[in-house]
């Protein structure tokens, strides 16, 4: 599914991601963990095309996407969420989601001017897609509420739905469970399992160890931009290098 070869990103002489190679298989939950500043978000930014890597290659289903712009990568089927997703607060949840399917539509200015049949069809398709995504994440009942009025956990789910509306094959979730309570965390974990059950590949960054250990098929550990370990949750738990890195620097290990 996603094959990373010797990926490196330098920021003004500092390596934020250093020579990372990894393979994420399709239809699995892949997790990336590591202390703060380990280069996890940078890794996501490289995969999704927001940043161009200094060296290395990124292959998505065998297609080289290393130098591709972010919007092209998205069209190839990489959806993502951010740690904080800025949405239009004073618009309804549904209105915010309709644009998610924009990349699969082609209407331009002329279509708007003459209100072409294509535009109408595509707007309907986008609206249906948004409803479908909203239904998938279990939020159909807040469809008409303003973003400003929904809860933190619902926002997380809306962000998921927005990524899902792009029809992705691979979804990158950046700290999906940050700032929600334990009960809600479980709910979000269920949602990720549901995504995989529906044929998606999930890749997430997370600090909540209980959640990761309970659901990930594969874990990659980053520290100071370098991959220090990868494997199943059981392997990671007993890996001395990981324990060292965590006990040495991060309080989240205790969680």
């Amino acid at each position: 599914m996603l094959k990373i070869e010797h990926l490196t990103k330098m920021f003004g002489g500092l390596a934020a991601v250093n020579d990372v190679s990894v393979v994420f298989e399709a239809n699995k939950i892949n997790a990336i963990i590591g202390p703060n500043g380990a280069g996890k978000s940078t890794f996501f930014n490289l995969v999704s095309g927001l940043h161009q890597p200094t060296s290395g290659r990124i292959l998505l289903d065998g297609v080289d996407v290393t130098q591709m712009r972010c919007d092209k990568v998205a069209q190839l089927g990489v959806g993502r969420t951010f740690q904080t997703t800025n949405l239009f607060e004073q618009a309804t949840v549904l209105d915010n989601l309709i644009v998610g399917h924009r990349l699969r539509t082609r209407s331009g200015l002329w279509d708007v001017l003459i209100n072409s049949r294509r535009l109408q069809a595509e707007e309907k398709a986008s609206r249906d897609k948004a409803r479908e995504a909203l239904d998938f994440v279990g939020l159909s009942h807040v469809e008409n509420q303003y973003i400003a009025d929904i809860t933190q956990e619902e926002r997380k789910r809306v962000a998921f739905a927005l990524a899902l509306a792009t029809d992705p094959k691979l979804v990158l979730l950046d700290e999906p469970a940050a700032g929600v309570n334990p009960e809600e965390t479980d709910g979000l974990a269920e949602l990720m399992k549901k995504m995989v059950a529906n044929g998606l590949t999930v890749c997430l960054i997370e600090h909540k160890m209980d959640m990761i250990m309970g659901m990930a098929d594969k874990i990659m550990v980053l520290d100071h931009g370098e991959k220090i370990a990868e494997g199943t949750p059981a392997e990671i738990k007993s890996n001395p290098v990981v324990i060292e890195a965590y006990l040495g620097s991060d309080e989240d290990a205790a969680a």
């Binding site: 927001l50 092209k72 951010f82 998610g100 924009r102 209407s107 708007v112 990524a163």
Partner: peptide, 23 residues
């Protein structure tokens, strides 16, 4: 229209818009 929604997505943030496949 979808075009207007595209503009609003850009207002919400360049990075988010790009990750939604918007040029």
């Amino acid at each position: 229209s979808l075009l207007g929604r595209t503009f609003i997505a850009i207002r919400n943030g360049d990075e988010l818009a790009e990750s939604l496949g918007i040029n």
